[in-house]
């Protein structure tokens, strides 16, 4: 029954969406922004930072709907199946789109969406437990390479962004280690602080919250707030890991609506309020227009496909 009514309403929506008049006075009511992660996480904070500024730029209120679960895919499925009229948009980081399709069977792909804009970028860094047997990058490399199961590293679960991040770092230094997944950020930080695990790859916010030792950044350029920490590229082991996200809409959304959203997104990302909020969250407010945003995710997806295959995480 749900599907019949949905089909009917989609048909009706299609009839309307085809007329450009509707697209031109977009938006004339509240816009729902689906965030595919529960409240309090990084994506949620980024979304809530954008929410007010996006509302200002659109001239309509923007309501955040958290729909977490299954590594962010549940919320992205919701966005893929929504009416393509621009009144339900998604704010998603790269992982559900560029990594999860390689890890599990999903009813969507990269092509199910139009890419509106990138709105933030969070670089990942390799951090060490205060009780780890290494203090510096060099010691970390030596320790990890000494034996295959010397290094114990944490992640919030197989196939998550921090897992892919540390895999990227380890493949750059040609080392392996023991992967210990945790459920949730709390137990993971606790294990790292207590020395149960040695290292992990996460955003600088996590390192700062728990006062952890950052060994190297997984970026091409140094991070301004960590200007004394070298990048892995400088150290001779190029590895890039990040969580970056932006707005997406279903592929059938009219171009006029996407253009309007992209303009609003650009204004919102450029606003002082958004910049200040993202900076405090140890993220960078970064705008990319749709096509470039798509290109960035395509490249990330390709890299993840290999990493996931190598780690044996491919969907059965």
């Amino acid at each position: 029954m749900r599907t019949t009514i949905r089909t009917l309403s989609l048909l009706a929506a299609g009839a309307f969406a085809a007329t450009s008049a509707v697209a031109q006075d977009y938006p004339n009511r509240q816009v729902n922004m689906v965030i595919p992660f529960p409240p309090g996480g990084n994506t949620d904070l980024m979304g809530r930072a954008l929410q007010a500024e996006l509302a200002k730029a659109l001239g309509q209120s923007v309501v955040v709907i958290n729909k977490g679960g299954a590594g962010g895919t549940l919320g992205v499925i919701e966005v893929s199946a929504t009416r393509p009229d621009g009144y339900t948009i998604g704010l998603t980081p790269n992982n559900p789109l560029t990594a999860q399709p390689h890890v599990q069977k999903l009813p969507y792909s990269m092509d199910s969406f139009k890419y509106v804009c990138l709105s933030y970028y969070v670089p990942y860094v390799v951090m060490a437990s205060p009780r780890a047997p290494f203090k510096t990058w060099q010691e970390f490399v030596t320790f990890s390479k000494a034996k295959n199961d010397n290094l114990i590293y944490a992640s919030p679960g197989p196939g998550t962004q921090p897992h892919l991040g540390i895999l990227s770092a380890l493949s750059a230094i040609k080392a392996e280690g023991v992967h210990v997944p945790f459920t949730g950020a709390g137990p993971m930080s606790q294990a790292l602080l207590a020395g149960t695990v040695h290292a992990m790859s996460e955003s600088t916010a996590v390192a700062k919250a728990s006062n952890l030792n950052v060994l190297a950044t997984q970026t091409n350029e140094r991070i301004p707030s960590l200007s004394n920490v070298p990048t892995m590229k400088e150290l001779g082991f190029p590895s890039e890991a990040f969580s970056a996200g932006g707005l997406i809409v279903p592929a059938a959304t009219p171009d006029a609506v996407v253009a309007r959203l992209q303009k609003a997104c650009q204004d919102a990302v450029a606003s002082d309020g958004y910049k200040a909020a993202t900076e405090k969250l140890n993220a960078t407010a970064r705008f990319l227009p749709g096509p470039e945003f798509r290109k960035m995710f395509d490249a990330d997806s390709k890299a993840n496909a290999e990493a996931v295959k190598k780690a044996g995480l491919v969907a059965k």
Binding site: P39, G40, G186, A209, N211
Partner: peptide, 15 residues
């Protein structure tokens, strides 16, 4: 004192 969010509510407050 440690920046460890013990539950979902603490995670939001940490944010």
């Amino acid at each position: 004192s440690l920046g460890i969010p013990a539950n979902a509510v603490m995670a939001v407050i940490l944010g």
